[in-house]
Amino acid sequence: MKIEALRTSQGAGPDLATGSTLEVRGCSIRYGDKPAVNDVTLAFALHRVTALIGPSGCGKSTLLRALNRMNDHIQSCRLEGQVLYHGQDIYDPAIDAAEVRKRMGMVFQKPNPFPKSIFDNVAFGPRLNGTFRGQARQALADHVEKCLRAAGLWEEVKDRLRDSALSLSGGQQQRLCIARAIANDPEVLLMDEPCSALDPISTARIEELILDMRENYTIVIVTHNMEQAARVSDNTGFLLSGDLVEFNNTADLFSRPRSKKTEDYITGRFG
């Protein structure tokens, strides 16, 4: 496959030592007549952070949303090619999008907690899927605590779990959204510019969190912040007008970009 070819011809290549359960093959996405992603093939390494970078409108968010079929809700959106999760094409008609999404948590650009209590936000997924049905209430409460701890929010909210999630600061809200996303015990975590609406301190906390969570999840993060990609990711894909220009381990991509376009972008010559 293309990825193999890249690896052998160009030095180290992307770090796929841990294997991969999620990959995209020959994936093209368009909105009506407007192409957004062109024939992209790449694999997301297990328990690694993969960053997708590129200028606005390059298709990185579209590609991310294709991974858990969130583009289904956009009427004009069409996808060709395959998105393979554990070897199954998630766009196969036999597969239900909700089953896919349960296994892939998603964090959005702007924090979007539900106008419910902090507890109810985290408990939303498990309740939806009946994870703790028939068990003691405490089981759900323990799970909520576990998720809030994993998202580094527990100490700040443990005394006010019944308060509205909207009473939290922006950074706290985003960590709550992360807690909510991991409450379904997903394997994959998709993050769509999770820090773009946050201040630098909140951003730093989320980045720490990403590094902490790396050992438990396969993380895909879309970011327009190249420093962020360099700080948190193991592999980086650079997209430009829908094409995957370069996909490599992050260190090499930033220090020895193979493509002139990548070099121009990371050195700030455009974008």
Partner: peptide
């Protein structure tokens, strides 16, 4: 806001669950 629907769908909610648990209360 559409972002609430997106959050609900992303957690694996069906359209009906999204309407009943997120959209209608809001």
């Amino acid at each position: 806001p559409g972002s609430l629907r997106a959050a609900s769908f992303a957690l694996g909610a069906s359209p009906l669950q999204t309407v009943l648990r997120v959209v209608l209360p809001s």
